[in-house]
């Protein structure tokens, strides 16, 4: 699903965010990316979603070489992956339903199909009853679940999450990570950037550790 080969990212000004990162993630794996703030977790996710381009090295996601993807194809590439953000990036002037439906609307799906899939995604995260509410009226954990529903509504093969439990208490964080685990068991490749060691120990999944932009630890592929 993901293959990085000697990937480096140098920002203008000479700061090396990533240095010679090489690893592969299989189609049905669940992986935690960990490291201190500034270790390069966010940069790695930005490169995987083409918010940033790698300065050197090869990045292949879902069988696409990202360096060769023309700018106009980027939207279509992004529809193949689901992304969950720490600040969930919900639109606060739209209802929960409209937020979750947005990727389908953007992709031009018919209203009937959009409604069906949106309700299915909301059902999966346990928020079917709150589809008409506005995100601001929901708790932090519920907002994050809306973000997850939006990320999976397209049925992507790859789910990326950047500190999805960063702003949540332990109980809510457990729920969120369990939700990711559930998607993984249904065949979705899941990559979670986090420094929540509790979740990492609880899940016992592969861990890739970054330190100052370099690959420090890779516990290696293991069956899910």
């Amino acid at each position: 699903m993901i293959r990085l080969n000697n990937v480096s990212k140098r920002y203008p000004g000479g700061f090396d965010a990533l240095r010679n990162i090489t690893f592969e993630v299989g189609d049905e794996e669940m992986v935690f990316i960990t490291g201190h703030s500034g270790a390069g977790k966010s940069t790695l996710l930005k490169i995987l979603t083409l918010i940033e381009h790698a300065s050197r090295g090869q990045v292949v996601v879902n069988n696409r070489n990202l360096a060769r993807l023309p700018r106009r194809r980027i939207p279509y590439f992004r529809r193949e992956i689901g992304v969950v953000f720490q600040d969930n990036k919900l639109l606060h002037d739209r209802t929960v339903f409209d937020n979750v439906a947005l990727p389908l609307v953007v992709a031009g799906m018919s209203p009937q199909e959009t409604g069906r899939r949106t309700r299915a995604a909301l059902d999966k995260v346990g928020l079917l009853g709150k589809e008409k509410m506005y995100p601001i009226t929901l708790s932090g954990g519920e907002q994050q679940r809306v973000g997850i529903a939006r990320a999976v509504v397209n049925k992507p093969a790859l789910l990326l999450a950047d500190e999805p439990t960063g702003n949540l208490d332990a109980e809510m964080a457990d729920q969120i990570i369990d939700l990711f685990h559930d998607f993984n068991r249904h065949g979705v490749c899941v990559l979670i950037a986090t420094h929540d060691l509790r979740q990492i120990q609880r899940m016992r999944k592969r861990v890739i550790g970054l330190k100052d932009g370099e690959l420090a630890v890779d516990s290696g592929s293991q069956a899910a």
Binding site: Y76, R78, V83, K89, V106
Partner: peptide, 16 residues
């Protein structure tokens, strides 16, 4: 701006 950013992130084309 933030709305446009989100739409770009979830695969909205420039035309959309």
């Amino acid at each position: 701006r933030s709305e446009i950013e989100v739409i770009k992130l979830i695969g909205g084309t420039d035309a959309f």
